[in-house]
Nucleic acid binder design. Structure first.
Lengths: 110, 110
DNA sequence: TTAGCCAGTTACCAAAAAGTAAGTTGTAGC
DNA sequence: GCTACAACTTACTTTTTGGTAACTGGCTAA
């Protein structure tokens, strides 16, 4: 979670700080389906670099949106999953998908 | 509205292209209250520069989210207002405000 | 005629975000 | 000992975005 000092006064700005870029939303969308390891996540999001994936995962973990679990299998794996807080974003994601889909149809039919 | 070529395949990416930065959301939030002229809008959003306001308004007008009306009063004014499409974003804004507020309370109480 | 308001634009600079590609650590199987 | 895989990190460059501040141009009221 953010500290009180990092928290913007505006609720919407808070949202943007936490998940206001396309990569974070894509990561959340992937993790809705199932928990994934780093490389699996990397493969499932076309175009993202390892560097950007890594930094976004760190920020989302710090924000409390996802969990990072090291699994002592062989080879050792790291599993990223949505936290409860992350799950609570699903209605927002859903409404974005719905609105975006409607807009696409509007454009395509014009 | 965007053209078919500018439209990303992913609905969420479409959303980000149209209103995926804090300034655009702030602009929409201001215009929910009432239509505003350029300078009034500029004064009502602390920290935004005229340049960035101007370019964001252009993009949002092109996307069909807002309307731009020149009013032949003296002095001549330009009025920016939410279009019907822009109004349809209100549920998303509302859910962002709600989620952001909840998160803020979580942080403040921890 | 000069000062002021509205609605911007322009040129230039700084900061933030993202892309590229190679390197690192650790473990395991052959 | 070599190869492979998972999970990253690092150094460097490019692109995008945003900020500063000054300027334009139409109109008006004193």
């Amino acid at each position: 979670m953010l500290t009180k000092e990092e928290l913007p006064p505006c609720p919407v700005a808070t949202c943007f700080q936490l998940f206001g870029n396309k990569w974070k939303i894509y990561i959340i969308q992937q993790l809705i389906e199932q928990p994934l390891g780093f490389n699996a996540l990397h493969r499932s999001i076309p175009g993202i670099s390892q560097k950007v994936l890594s930094s976004n995962l760190k920020e989302m973990d710090a924000a409390g949106l996802i969990t990072r679990t090291v699994i002592p299998e062989t080879p050792i794996r790291t599993e990223y999953a949505l936290s409860e807080l992350g799950q609570s974003l699903m209605p927002i994601i859903d409404s974005l998908v719905e609105w975006g889909t409607d807009y696409q149809q509007l454009v395509r039919s014009s």
